[in-house]
């Protein structure tokens, strides 16, 4: 039992850290702002929902309106507008539901904070587990509670054990 607990804790900590790293990576990779005009337009479109589809981004949807969104985004980037300005226009027309990522305010902050919180929880779990491993083994409380044998009892016990061994042999 004592050997399993640290292993389970370590596995949980590793899972939490992996989840946090994945979320952080996704957040960083989705905010890319470099590359060719097409790549930049695709990156902006990937942050917007296709307004006539279910759960598809404007970058991935084959719907004509998504194609028109991509064309409009490309045109506006070419005209020197920033991705944030373009997104703000779509939010102004459609509302915040057009954003694939939640807004960084109110309840929308939760998914942004979750990677950090999960990471901290994972590190805390690792620290506690390592501390428990490195601590010298304490005496088994059941041993301390056991009554000490007297010399007579010890002799009786040895005799009984020898007799038992003799029966077995």
């Amino acid at each position: 039992m004592t050997g399993r607990l640290p292993l389970a804790g370590l596995a949980l900590a590793a899972a939490l850290l992996a989840a946090a790293a994945a979320l952080a990576f996704a957040a960083i990779s989705s905010s890319g702002n470099s590359g060719t005009l097409e790549q930049r337009a695709h990156a902006v479109a990937a942050t917007l929902k296709c307004p006539v589809c279910h759960d598809l981004s404007a970058a991935d949807s084959p719907a004509p309106v998504a194609q028109q969104m991509r064309a409009q985004i490309t045109e506006e980037l070419r005209a020197g507008r920033t991705p944030d300005q373009i997104r703000a226009d779509f939010v102004g027309a459609y509302g915040e539901w057009i954003l694939l990522s939640p807004p960084q305010q109110g309840l929308g902050l939760l998914p942004w904070l979750a990677p950090g919180l999960l990471g901290m929880a994972g590190l805390a779990l690792v620290a506690v587990t390592l501390r428990r491993w490195s601590r010298p083994h304490e005496a088994d409380p059941t041993d301390a509670a056991a009554p000490q044998l007297t010399a007579a009892d010890r002799r009786l016990l040895d005799k009984a054990l020898a007799a038992a061994r003799g029966e077995v042999d």
């Binding site: 307004p51 006539v52 028109q68």
Partner: peptide, 13 residues
């Protein structure tokens, strides 16, 4: 053309 006005008004259906 290009649904520019529709997109500016936030038409989704």
């Amino acid at each position: 053309p290009g649904s520019r006005t529709g997109l500016a008004y936030g038409v989704s259906g």
